[in-house]
Design a protein around this nucleic acid. Sequence first.
RNA 1: GCGUCUGUCGUCAAGCGGUUAAGACCUCGGAUUGUGGUUCCGAUAUGCAUGGGUUCGAAUCCCAUCAGACGCCCCA
Length: 412
Amino acid sequence: MAKIINIIKGTKDILPQDVEQWHILESKALEIFSKYGYKEIRTPIFEATELFARGVGDTTDIVNKEMYTFEKSERSLTLRPENTAGVVRSFIENGMARLSAPVKLWYKGPMFRYERPQAGRQRQFHQVGVEMFGIKNAAADAEVILLAVNYLKSLGLCDLEVELNSLGCPTCREAYKSKIKEVLKPEFDNLCEDCQSRYEKNPLRLLDCKVESCKEIFAKPEIQKVIQSDFICEECAAHFEELKSYLDKLNVKYTINKLLVRGLDYYNRTVFEIKSNNLGSQNAVCGGGRYDSLVRNLGGEDTPAVGWAMGMERLNSLLPVPEPELLDGYIVSTSPADAFELAENLRTLGLKIEFDLANKKFTKQLEKASKVAKYALILGEDEIKSGTVSVKNLSTGEQVAVAKNKIAETLK
RNA sequence: GCGUCUGUCGUCAAGCGGUUAAGACCUCGGAUUGUGGUUCCGAUAUGCAUGGGUUCGAAUCCCAUCAGACGCCCCA
């Protein structure tokens, strides 16, 4: 036998028995997002590398070590590691800034990140997400969070934690960053290797280090004082307060997590995550926030925006496995031609029908019927002569002779 | 990139240096040439991820490689 070719590390087949769950995720997304006026957009799975370098940020791990990049015709192309940059690109390129704000978009599809696979993490994975452009008010942040919560609720996922934080604007964040660096400077040599590199690259990321010795350092009162201090400027604080009051009014429960930073460079002000305790260590199902400068950074008109993305595999692993769906009928017949004709007629009426293409023995056909269908439609010589079909209910064993044109009513 | 653990039929597995490599499920065939889901029989790994080694003897011990799972980093 020829050598078999295996699936690529970090990728997964979505097998027929699992696909129903995906249909649920997708149809609920369409249903719920439509109610809020969001329209689906589909962007290419590869884009110019520069889009991600400038969009996601070239200090991020996603851009630095996780992109699938390849050259073609002297262009550097990259499989999208996330879809916000692509949607923003499309927003700009298609002149959507001219549309009356807000512009509300949602998407779903595969994303690619070269990471070590583990529970809840693949190299090709799927996200569903929303983006709203053109509204700077906290009402937009609130709507987007509410939408996430309601989408999760529609899937039956209610006991999830919403965590919230504000990163402030570039101005107040810079001040905060330098304060953190200042207070940690004496401890620099005691920090772990990762933290030492984060110190320069992204001081905010220092705060949730899991190394014990670092935790101890961060727990010191003078350092905690800086971490816990409300560094954000008045405007940013007002925005955050407004968001919280909307959420309170809408009865969306949340907790403030000052250490919530998020790893993409484009966020400002609101950031949030939704977490589950049933996911192992990769416990975030949803992550998002506000990114007011991204559109401008990618060459568009200055346009405020908020959005989030959810990992569909992670959602799926929280959902119960649906029962496999049975056929309406399985035709048991010794005459394939007649079975074919009957099957086609019933399919035209919207029924799910199969019959035995291999022309096996009667008992085998019936056995198969009992495994895959609600009803066995017995079409033998006697039935063909009399123009009827014996319809057998496979769960009760009841069997009745039915005229061919009455079968559809009997099956429902 | 680093760490820990794991690779025996399509699936779940027993086996722990000497076996003919259990068993179960699935699949297929038969009992049963028009009445199933129960039952009963039968079929299905010259091979235990791959390559080396140790040994009289290896699925079992050792090494390497590959693959997978989980964790770190990071993220959905």
